[in-house]
Design a protein around this nucleic acid. Structure first.
Lengths: 332, 332
DNA sequence: ATATAGAATGTAACCGCTTACATTTTTTAT
DNA sequence: ATAAAAAATGTAAGCGGTTACATTCTATAT
């Protein structure tokens, strides 16, 4: 592999000049620029990124930590982050934290040890203090889907309370008055917020919150089935179920069907996240769209702004989810 | 940030010795090792990975190119690759090629420019010659899901012909004799092979291949719908459909239902890939399991072996898909 | 005690680039 | 034509490690 030294010799200029045309920093006469470019082409020269990084103290790579690489949610996020960042010539180093505190910390250490210029963190289990401490370090961080009040300008979040609210409101507006709710794990902020929104909508419509009709799941499909079985066993009538994510909604719909209930004729169902498979279900599942892709894009732009000095980028920190109505909701 | 120099001074040893204990290369007395370790701890020293890379001519990062980051297939693959590689302390740099020749080449250039120690390529559009040329370069490559005869030891593939064969065979064994087939784009090798397997199974059972009952889709759900509409409009009776992937199968099932056909009572359906949402469908879709996760793992191990000299790793180059029977197939 | 092999440690030359600063060339003003 | 200012280019000192080789120490054999 040719080095910058050979290029400079062939072009008859100094190292510095070659470096200048590579990074078009500083002024270079068109004539010498052409000489250099020609030499580069002739040698098939490609700068050594490790040397560049070392000398410039900048790796041009940003670390990403997400809970899982598979699953319908994170792929979409990653996709937009990668696009935006690579268009800017940045490398994307990914790690998966599996929602486990130790593993998440491991990943962060790993990324810090990889000389990342910035970190995009989608963590669940690491305590806020850790993040606050981390943010004091030299590496800029962006926090996704996890609101840390002390770091509010570094957080990009979805308004989950609002999501829970509009999901429930959609059902109420369709004339439903007896609603069940299948929640995610109550210790997860996301779950908690969505449920709060649900309750707010109920109150706004002057309806009682019946705690019995709130079942807790794990965000997995099987738990949605269990929750639905439980709700149906209660003998409390309800005409619609709000589910805190789409997987659980899928499970719930199937259980309803097994109990001889037709969706949406006998019971309406709404999910949350609007992941891709919602339209493959039968009936097509109504859901709450989370603008995952946009959030990823903004996260990437934040990095460009904070770590690479790209100004002129506006950052939106909070996203409002929106209702996506399909076939699983019907008017009473 | 502390440097190795400061560590060496604090520990009262030379740079080389510190480097030795860091990489435990060469012999070091336990006593001096402890001194060094203590100094490292005291200073909170963390080696600068860029300097390490430059000096050792090894970046410890491997580049990954996949068609898409989202979608049920690639996430799973990526997930196992990342796990395996990071357990070995390697960084994973990802890029998405979007099945476009120019973009795929771009990505490869980008990864090469990132000083990757090895590349894992899941490409569709780049010509074989390009890959062959690439393989002659200094960076080891692994090719996923794309068989290049000249590079057979670098390819990790799924036996798609066999997959098509067992899918069809499953239906035949359930007593079906009039089968339709919804294929992927015929220019994709995957599609072609799966269809070949289908035809082989048919012949093996002494059945004619009716080309009219073979519809071509694009691997997208909507195209599965279209294909099914087309097949049903033909007025040629068939009792089962083999689909070249799960998305199209989902679409096909829905269209069948809209035409008043019950799955699997009136018509059996089988998909391909066994992506996660197959079990959320109604009825649960039978499919062909592709061991995506295992393939990813093997790809990672290949890299460990070829680029990092880890011997003692056995590599399996071809994977046989397996049948996953669920509720969408019923005996005649 | 002394020579000697072998182990532990140190020395210093890179790795290939960036960049502050010095120098030379060109342009502009007088 | 000449001096001053501005622009282009060159020089060389890092960036923070690794590693071949040289040197010093230790242990063993004589």
């Amino acid at each position: 592999m040719a080095t910058i030294y050979e290029v400079s010799k062939l072009a008859g200029v100094s190292l510095a000049t070659v470096s200048r045309v590579m990074n078009d920093s500083g002024k270079v006469t068109p004539k010498t620029r052409d000489k250099v470019l020609a030499a580069i082409a002739e040698l098939g020269y490609r700068p050594n990124s490790m040397a560049q990084s070392l000398a410039s103290r900048r790796s041009n790579s940003v670390g990403i930590l997400i809970p899982e690489l598979h699953g319908p949610f994170f792929g979409v996020m990653l996709s937009s982050v990668e696009k935006e960042l690579r268009d800017a010539g940045k490398r994307v180093i990914i790690t998966a934290g599996h929602s486990d505190e130790a593993k998440e910390k491991d990943c962060i250490e790993f990324l810090l040890g990889s000389s990342c210029d910035a970190l995009i963190l989608h963590v669940y289990s690491v305590p806020h203090e850790y993040l606050i401490e981390l943010s004091k370090g030299p590496v800029p961080i962006i926090i996704l889907n996890n609101y840390v009040p002390e770091l509010s300008d570094k957080c990009i979040v979805l308004d989950n309370e609002h999501g829970g609210y509009i999901a429930t409101k959609a059902l109420l507006e369709h004339g439903h008055e007896e609603l069940a709710y299948i929640s995610g794990p109550s210790w997860k902020t996301d779950s908690f917020k969505r449920l709060s929104g649900h309750k707010r909508a109920l109150k706004e419509y002057g309806l009682e919150v019946n705690e019995n009709l709130i079942a807790e799941g794990t965000f997995e499909e099987a738990s949605g089935r269990l929750a639905m079985e439980h709700l149906l066993s209660l003998d409390i009538p309800f005409t619609a179920v709000v589910c805190a994510n789409d997987e659980m909604a899928a499970g719930a719909m199937d259980v309803a069907r097994k109990h001889g209930l037709r969706v949406p004729d006998d019971i309406s169902v709404i999910g949350y996240d609007n992941v891709s498979f919602t339209r493959y279900l039968h009936p097509k599942l109504s859901s709450i769209g989370c603008r995952i892709s946009e959030m990823g894009q903004v996260a990437a732009r934040c990095v460009l702004k904070n770590a690479y000095g790209q100004t002129d980028l506006e950052i939106q920190n909070t996203f409002k989810p929106r209702l996506v109505l399909r076939d699983s909701v019907k008017s009473r």
